[in-house]
């Protein structure tokens, strides 16, 4: 018996290999087709987003929304991580309060200051060709302190009894965060993120600063709505044109919609629990 080969196993593995090969090649083929089919529209979208000159207001609007979204997605993971760390892993003491109030202060800094970061630190580094990237990075640096504070307070708003009960059931700190705190802080965080996006998305000053890094460039970042409005208002002989009104309307509508969505989210985000004096929230 020792030398005999288990024919069943061999057949099985051959079958498995054939099946895997077949399925794999089929999948690859499908993937190729999907890529082939979707590539042109994706490229067109990318071209629309990253093109430097604006044509219609709608395309400018879509581009600036995408860039805002990119900046937010860039800043959000970092901000959430930092917020969780500050809220749940550091002791509630003077040092933490100091760090937090400084971050909050940074979040309330005038937008020109962040523009200066883009102008002085990012623009020389990335160069004229990557202006869009510089603007996105500037926006996400500006969003960062706002979102850190948002994530921190979203966690702190949850009553301490949640942490206590979870820990009393033998959860680790991370489990408590993951299963007890994060599900209930999401709404408030989303609300505050939307508020931050409304602020950052409507502000022209950082873009003005980044554009000022290359004052003679032909590639002014006109594909960003607030800057576009600013720029064309400056250059226009008569500011009261339909195009300006349209741009202003789009800008207002976007910001106000973000703000109202935030308001709705905020209103339904309350959880009941115990706030025990002395019990630390970490």
């Amino acid at each position: 018996m020792r030398n005999s080969i288990d024919t069943g196993a061999v057949i099985c593995s051959v079958f498995a290999a054939v099946a895997l090969f077949g399925a794999g090649s089929l999948l690859a083929l499908m993937g190729y087709l999907v890529l082939k089919g979707l590539w042109p529209p994706m490229r067109a979208l990318a071209a629309l987003i990253f093109a430097h000159s604006g044509d219609s207001l709608l395309s400018i609007w879509i581009r600036s929304l995408f860039l805002l979204l990119a900046a937010t997605l860039l800043a959000l993971p970092l901000a959430i991580g930092t917020g969780i760390y500050l809220s749940e892993y550091t002791r509630q003491n003077r040092a933490r309060e100091l760090i937090l109030s400084n971050i909050a202060g940074l979040g309330e800094m005038p937008p020109v200051v962040y523009g200066l970061v883009g102008w002085g630190a990012l623009a020389p580094y990335f160069g004229e060709d990557r202006q869009t990237l510089v603007i996105v990075l500037t926006a996400s640096v500006w969003l960062l302190p706002q979102l850190i504070v948002a994530a921190y307070w979203a966690l702190q708003e949850i009553p301490v009894s949640f942490r206590r009960d979870s820990l009393a059931l033998g959860a680790t700190r991370w489990q408590t965060i993951r299963w007890t705190l994060m599900p209930y802080s999401g709404r408030l965080l989303a609300a505050k993120t939307l508020e931050g996006m409304a602020r950052v998305g409507g502000e022209a000053a950082p873009v003005i600063m980044v554009a000022a890094a290359w004052p003679d460039s032909s590639k002014q970042p006109l594909h960003i709505l607030p800057y576009y409005l600013y720029r064309s208002l400056i250059e226009a002989v008569d500011p009261a044109t339909t195009r300006h009104f349209g741009a202003a309307l789009l800008l207002v509508l976007t910001s106000v919609c973000f703000q109202w969505a935030a308001l709705r989210l905020r209103r339904t985000g309350v959880v009941a629990g115990d706030t025990l004096p002395g019990l630390r929230k970490r």
């Binding site: 202003a248 207002v252 308001l263």
Partner: peptide
């Protein structure tokens, strides 16, 4: 709700209104 919405109005738009006022 209106006040909350208004607080999100970008400053470029306020500037636009300012220009219109100046000219008219």
């Amino acid at each position: 709700i209106v006040i909350r919405g208004l607080s999100a109005i970008p400053s470029v738009v306020i500037g636009f209104i300012g220009i219109l006022w100046l000219l008219h």
